[in-house]
Design a protein around this nucleic acid. Sequence first.
DNA 1: TAGTGGTCTAGACCACCAC
DNA 2: TGGTGGTCTAGACCACTAG
Lengths: 239, 239
Amino acid sequence: MTLSTKYQPLYQQVYDEIVKRLSEGYWKAGDSLPSEFGLADELGVSQGTVRKALNQLVDENILRRRQGKGTYVSEHNNENSLYRFFRYKEHGGESVIPETEVVSLTSRQASAREAKKLRLTENLMVAEMVRVRSIKGRPAIYEMVLQPLSIFPGIDEVDEIPNSLYGYYQSKYGISVVEVRDELHAVILDEKVANHLELNAGEAALMTERSSINIDGRVVEWSQAYCSTEKFVYSVSLK
Amino acid sequence: MTLSTKYQPLYQQVYDEIVKRLSEGYWKAGDSLPSEFGLADELGVSQGTVRKALNQLVDENILRRRQGKGTYVSEHNNENSLYRFFRYKEHGGESVIPETEVVSLTSRQASAREAKKLRLTENLMVAEMVRVRSIKGRPAIYEMVLQPLSIFPGIDEVDEIPNSLYGYYQSKYGISVVEVRDELHAVILDEKVANHLELNAGEAALMTERSSINIDGRVVEWSQAYCSTEKFVYSVSLK
DNA sequence: TAGTGGTCTAGACCACCAC
DNA sequence: TGGTGGTCTAGACCACTAG
């Protein structure tokens, strides 16, 4: 473990080292980590210090621990974390799970605004994926997802995109989305989006702009999603 | 400390005991708690166990610790936690702080839906506070806040309501809001709300329904707020 | 200087899991 | 039975604060 020049607590250095290894793909989604004592020996600290770093990563949903078994890298395709970032619920408060149909998948240059949102140099190439997400068989969300081709090479030429994009990023590209930042707007539906959602133009709808953050802190995806709140609402709890 | 019949880790029992004391007003907002060793002696556990419980409460913004000074009950009127639950930001991402004007303050029976949201028996009396919140001098948010009179006796007869309701709940009623649950809807503005916001009826706006949760788990407030997203957006980060 | 929280270590014991 | 994480304790030392 490389010691930094400015003082950092040991457990923070251990945390940073583990994040670095996860970022570099040294451990991949689903892998098990060495035991607390194993890591402690390797890094030259005590087991309690490793434990503190590991617990912090568990709090952030980056690792999972199972008593008697070991410590594992979280996957975006288990029941706990899948759809953790999907915030739409029925009016009654029931969670729902969407199916997804890809409408189009192309590549193009990012606009100035898009590049800024993705923190890219202007004019870089991005994949543009347009999807309609259905709930209980009825179209509910129309979304456009932008992925920089520098981060996801070849993603614009893929035939089968699974329902869970984040799981796909993780398994194919080693990208682990650990945070999303949403901005919610109210808009009037235009003709095109309304048609996809089987609604009438002129109705009010939520429009969510989302930046998805990789474990290394990079913005790896930016999306816009339209959803009528006649049947579903965006639901979130703050503590 | 009363031991529960079913097994709970010691630190969890310590946590529960501290929450109980905070709920009962044994410690109030701004108070300092005994030192870790003091609490440990009193509760018959080790200092490390108390520390684990305290750190959990700090993570939840319920306590604050200052090295060299002590552990304090969080207040809703310091720069860190005030407006923690206010999620509207400018399009550029800049945080904004609203001023508030009370439009009306009355009391009435809760409707069936409102009672359900507040988890009250139907027909109980609530205060209804209507406010317009302005940002940089221009009206931005129109909201209706419902407060059960059983929880906030006399709040419908108060002359001066401060800008921060949560701080007021804390100082006057010993109610500490530690969590809010928001549901976001898209609506078309009607004449009345549009007039208050100096907008035109027929425009799209965000409508946020919020339940506010006290430290003891009760829903103590329910509100509806309307905001045009022409200038401001609802912004949230999920991890 | 005394008291507080912050870090780090070491070790004991328990609960869970796989073989 | 051995290995894992989970809990709990005890003690050393550091950093910050106040008088």
